[in-house]
Write a protein that binds this DNA or RNA. Structure first.
Lengths: 164, 164
DNA sequence: TATTGTTATACTCTATAACTATA
DNA sequence: TATAGTTATAGAGTATAACAATA
């Protein structure tokens, strides 16, 4: 247990971290410049645009790994900007259904081309089609593994409280 | 220009984004739980511990892609916790040299095993040695490409100011 | 004049806890 | 009693601009 990472693991971890940070930074700049959206706001709009059924606040919070209060805050901002609408769910009167508006879809359309450009230029320019397939396979397996493994479990290696 | 991403590119981008977010979230939790450090603070300490020569605030800010004021803030926190020391540079009286303390190295040592565990469990458990080599190669090329390509250039596709 | 670093300040993001209302 | 969502609030992180000191 706690054996060190081998050199290739270490290198790849650092490269991944740095690349992901640089990409995220560039994407955030682009979304802000082209559509005055934070990444989370973009994610919410994109999720709503893709959804085949109406989504509730809880549905959205699950997708974004977000506290509900944080989502309420972001939804309030998006609603103030007229990009989404919230209405009480007819099925469950406790729930709130969130819809993307035409303005929301328009904003998404404004932002998407630049988003794709950034991803292609930064992430895919140095990769061949063969590389992309390999990268797709590996990242897919990593993501599936992370989804399956509850991230919290690996975290706290300290006893919660011994005293008291 | 602005041709869409192909399916494999799109899948890999989503997988990468989700995996990187989950990994970052877990790492942040671990660093906070095991050593009461934010990721940026950990990054600063690790950079100082690895450095072969004394680093200035500007050296550090360059490595972390950080505003100088933000770095000053984080350095003040780390210094208050006695994990680093700042002193005027003898060579350039404008500059501040930052040193990691014994306590800083000790804190790093407390945190590193758990950090490595999280990375191995989340990132490398589903990969063979062969996969790791491939992954190392591809992520390394991506990072080098991103470093070479100034991230800002791809960002603003709006004219700065036409009026005034 | 340009550069290093700090300070003052303000804004955004996020989370916790308390709360309302429905189920 | 449990769940959906909001509100109030507080804390952390980051950035901009103004500033002081030095090159």
């Amino acid at each position: 247990m706690t054996s060190p990472l081998n050199p290739a693991q270490l290198r790849a971890y650092f490269a991944l971290t740095e690349a992901a940070n640089l990409l995220q930074f560039a994407v955030q700049q682009q979304l802000r410049a082209d559509g005055d959206l934070s990444y989370v706001q973009f994610d919410i709009l994109a999720t709503l645009a893709d959804a085949t059924r109406p989504l509730t606040m809880t549905d959205l919070a699950d997708g974004v790994v977000y506290s509900r209060s944080g989502l309420t805050h972001q939804a309030a901002l998006l609603e103030k900007a007229a990009l989404i609408v919230r209405r009480p769910s007819p099925a469950d009167h406790r729930a709130t259904v969130v819809d993307i508006t035409d303005a929301g879809r328009a904003r998404l359309a404004e932002v998407l081309p630049g988003h794709v450009d950034v991803v292609r230029e930064m992430l895919y320019e140095p990769l061949s089609d063969q590389d992309v397939d390999t990268f797709d396979d590996i990242t897919g397996r990593i993501r599936d593994h992370m989804r399956a493994k509850p991230p919290r479990s690996a975290v706290s290696r300290r006893p919660e409280t011994d005293e008291g």
